[in-house]
């Protein structure tokens, strides 16, 4: 007669199987394989439609997903979250018009932020072309921040584009930003602080970069 599995063994095996089944989902949660699952189904559906459109259009989709997650984290109304994601999608399409598609994800995000801060499309397009290793990302982030801190869009765009055209390096742009930031915190007018500090930036012309004529200014933006 064949011995059968004892009751205790069966209990242990069943418990192990259940525990194993419980552990695997935990591992999947740790990987966060589906971040959009945090959204309610209707919002998620709409966001996925936008993301799908972005995929077809060839703009980065991860930035859109992150925007949706940001809205969820900030407990923003679903309609506003969808509106923000949709707005970002359209802004990314504008970025592609201004700068082309040869950008990394960070540059896409920085350029979109610059447009959202009020930099006109024509102004952003002036950063297009051969960079000669110059820091597009730093330039765009600094431009956006200066506008956020109260520097008029036209003055901020002109200053950063001037540095960019003269072949300014990352340290030059960062140095300018830090000085202006200090001046603003000490109570100076943002626009005046930028104009003053801009004259102090010792820029070496990078090989291959063009020095614009003195009259060259970016188009007057509508801020």
């Amino acid at each position: 007669m064949t011995p059968v599995i004892s009751r205790g063994s069966r209990v242990v095996v069943c418990a192990a199987a259940m525990l194993l089944g419980a552990l695997q989902p935990l591992a999947l949660i740790a990987q966060d394989p589906d971040p959009l699952s945090r959204l309610d189904p209707q919002t998620r559906y709409t966001i996925e439609l936008i993301i799908d459109s972005a995929r077809v259009a060839g703009v980065p989709t991860r930035l859109l997903m992150l925007k949706a997650l940001e809205g969820q984290a900030k407990h923003v109304d679903n309609r506003h979250t969808i509106a923000a994601v949709r707005s970002l999608f359209h802004t990314l399409l504008d970025v592609r018009v201004a700068l082309g598609s040869a950008l990394n994800e960070s540059e896409w995000g920085a350029a979109a932020s610059a447009l959202q801060a009020g930099v006109p499309l024509e102004g952003l397009a002036k950063f297009r072309g051969d960079r000669n290793g110059r820091p597009l990302l730093r330039a765009l982030v600094t431009l956006t921040d200066l506008i956020q801190r109260g520097v008029p869009v036209s003055e901020a765009s002109s200053a950063i584009l001037q540095l960019w055209s003269r072949g300014a390096g990352e340290s030059d742009i960062y140095g300018l930003w830090k000085s202006v930031d200090q001046d603003i915190h000490s109570g100076q007018n943002p626009g005046t602080a930028l104009a003053t500090r801009l004259r102090e930036v010792p820029v070496q012309v990078a090989p291959g970069s063009k020095i614009p004529p003195a009259s060259q200014e970016p188009d007057n933006p509508s801020s």
Binding site: K74, S87, Q116, P135, T142
Partner: peptide, 23 residues
Amino acid sequence: APLAPEDGLGAPNSVVLVGGSAS
């Protein structure tokens, strides 16, 4: 840190640039 523009989601965010790809 530098600021990112407010885009309808409430509080503004900050920006940090990391590493060599920042150029």
